[in-house]
Amino acid sequence: MILFLMAIAAFGIIKLRNLFAVVMLSGIFSLLAASLYVHLTAVDVAFTEASVGAGISTLLMLATLAITGEYEKKHTTNNLFPLLIVVVTGAALIYGTLDMPLYGAANAPANLHLIPRFIEQSGTEIGIPNIVTSVLASYRGYDTLGETVVIFTAAIGVLVLLGRGRNRWRPGISADAPSKDEENEV
């Protein structure tokens, strides 16, 4: 049922030209994904999806819409070749999942080695009840460090592109008022 609703939302995102509605639909999509994760008892992931996917990124997209405008341009290029690439990639990915063990299968490699190890040992090794936090911050501390640096880099990128001192490179400004270089030439 949730997957069906997600498919409807995704189809709406593709079809609609009103970007405001698209942003709202992507927020709904994230919220549906979050409830799917709750259904799979991955509460931490659901929490992240709800706060980041449905909350902050919807807000940031709305802030972007305030800058760019509400409607998507109609593009008339031929979509056949991109469609072919998407279909082939999707088929390859589905073919890849055929070899994977079924969801929750008891003899899956992850359920045989890693998960019992974390469930049995993390209580004595780390001593905190939330195993997800133990794995995230301690066993996989390097990964989380990498993720933090990625977020840091995103902020730096936004600051470099749009932050202070942007007027010097913005072409729209020099059209109205003469820039410093032009004044020197005069």
Partner: peptide, 21 residues
């Protein structure tokens, strides 16, 4: 409370930022 229940730095940071936004 991320050690004891669902949650942690990522979620907390986003919620904290949401208040300022």
């Amino acid at each position: 409370h991320g050690d004891f229940g669902p949650g942690g730095g990522f979620q907390a940071g986003v919620i904290f930022a949401a208040a300022f936004i």
